[in-house]
Amino acid sequence: MTGKVPADAPARRAEVLARIAAALVDRPASSAVPRDYQHRLPDHVDVLDLFAERVADYRSTVHRTDAAGLAATVAAAIADRGIRRLVVPGGIPEGWLAACPAERIGDDPPLSVEELDGIDGTITGCAVAIAETGTFVLDAGSGQGRRVLSLLPDRLICVVTADQVVGTVPEALARLEPARPQTWVSGPSATSDIELERIEGVHGPRILDVVLVDRPG
C-alpha cells in the first residue's frame, strides 16, 4: 500500500469520535424502522412483461426469446448493431454465441483499456434483474467479467434469463453478495444536465440491447 498514513492519524480519529459522542450527549431516543413499504409485486403482475416494458422505457431495445431462439436473437442483435469485434467475458455459455457473426475477443490475459476502447461491443450475462425499475445488475461473476468490460465498448448486449428477474429492489438486494463489485444498469448512459432534459448516451455504452430469455413453454 503506497499511501502512507499521516502521523497524527490516531489523534484525528479519536477527536472526531469524541466530537460525535459529545454531540449525542442528549442520547436521542431509539425507535424501530418501519418497513411496511412494498417488498414484492402483487401476484398478478407478470415480472417478465414488466421488466421488458420498463427496460424499453429507458429507450433501450428489448428482445424476447426462449432458449431455442437465443443464439439467433443474439446473432441478430450483434449484426444489427454492426458489431464486428465482440468482447466475450469468461463463462459466457457457448450456446449464446453459436451463431455469432463477430470476431470474439476474450479477456484472458486482461485487455488493456486502450484495447477495450477500440472494440465495438460487449456481451454479458448478469446476476439479477429488477422488473419494477428495469434494471439489471452486473456483479463481475461468471459470464460478466471485470467491470470495465461493460463500460468502454459503445454497444452492450446483456442476456437476462427468466429465473434472474425479480420484482423489486428489496428482492434484488437479498439475492446479491455485497462483497462483489456491482454495477446496476438501468438503460443506456444518460444525462439530464442540459436543461434537465434526459438525453441518452454520454460515457457508458450508448446502445443497449437486453435479450430476455423467457421460461420454456
Binding site: T133, T183, W184, G187, P188, A190, R198, G204
Partner: peptide, 12 residues
C-alpha cells in the same frame, strides 16, 4: 425523477 438512475456502482 427516474425509477432508477442509469448506473449505480458499489464496491467493497
Amino acid at each position: 425523477a427516474e425509477r432508477m438512475n442509469p448506473y449505480t456502482s458499489m464496491w467493497t
